[in-house]
Design a protein around this nucleic acid. Sequence first.
DNA 1: TATTATAGTTAAGCCCGTTTAACTATTAAG
DNA 2: CTTAATAGTTAAACGGGCTTAACTATAATA
Lengths: 155, 155
Amino acid sequence: MSEELFLSALREWIEISMHRSRHAFIRNIRESDLSFSQINTLFRLYHHGSSPVNDLANHLGITTAAVSQLLEPLHQSGLIQRSESPNDRRVKLIALTDAGQALVNRSVQNRHAWLSELSEVLTQEEKEQLLPAIILLTERIHQLDVEAHPPCDSD
Amino acid sequence: MSEELFLSALREWIEISMHRSRHAFIRNIRESDLSFSQINTLFRLYHHGSSPVNDLANHLGITTAAVSQLLEPLHQSGLIQRSESPNDRRVKLIALTDAGQALVNRSVQNRHAWLSELSEVLTQEEKEQLLPAIILLTERIHQLDVEAHPPCDSD
DNA sequence: TATTATAGTTAAGCCCGTTTAACTATTAAG
DNA sequence: CTTAATAGTTAAACGGGCTTAACTATAATA
């Protein structure tokens, strides 16, 4: 099996999955009174944990001024909290509150609701074969994060 | 194995994958001179084939007036083409041109570039085990589309 | 200590994506 | 044939997300 074959199969699967989740994602944005950048901020915090305003701005590709402004309503709604970094008192660490975490969780469930349909067209035997493959892939993605940010060299 | 276990494993894998692709997606939008809705329009056409303006508006959650306006620059850039529906001359079918298709292809490659890194932390043996699982999942997603829009009952 | 750099906030102003409303063209219904 | 409904386009106006610029506070440097 060629490397390119494996990659293109993986790419096709992910692209189709993302497309399926896209419609729910768009509806989620329009129905909530949150902007594209605000939603992305919540998801960034969900996956990366607490982050400085700086990092969020870099991730979103906008200025820190814009981030500071979009954070304010999120704070008012009780979705995020700010805390000073113990190392550098200039830095404000932004983190999800429990309510924020719950909101993202609901959004994730919503986006991927179509997975239930997918599950229905799979036999029990197929699912048991697929499960270890999915778990392996998920583990190895986490491994990528560890290699990129080794725990020994604190950044 | 419980149904919920399988679903949550699948959901975690997809959510993490989508998050990994998200950063490239955001950069893609900011660097191109296309709006969020324009990008989504191109991807919608990429996956669904030619669509009436009506459908696009419904998918994006905006009015047909807005769609009509965002299509104009895409048409000027040669990314899409309009054609009259043979059944109903009021309907304009929007489709990607070859240039539009190429642009989306490049964008997809870009978004999922991190898959190469994932591939590097997998052994050849693991990849050979994973490939049929990925292909099975992809096939079954397509099956969902067929069931939702059976070819016999033309819609 | 004095100077420079960095992190974040605030306010003013701009840009552009969207809505509303008015219009044309085509199809469906009475 | 007449009327009503649907698909799409166009232009004016609105609103919100972003940038720029000015500012405060903390940290690093000389």
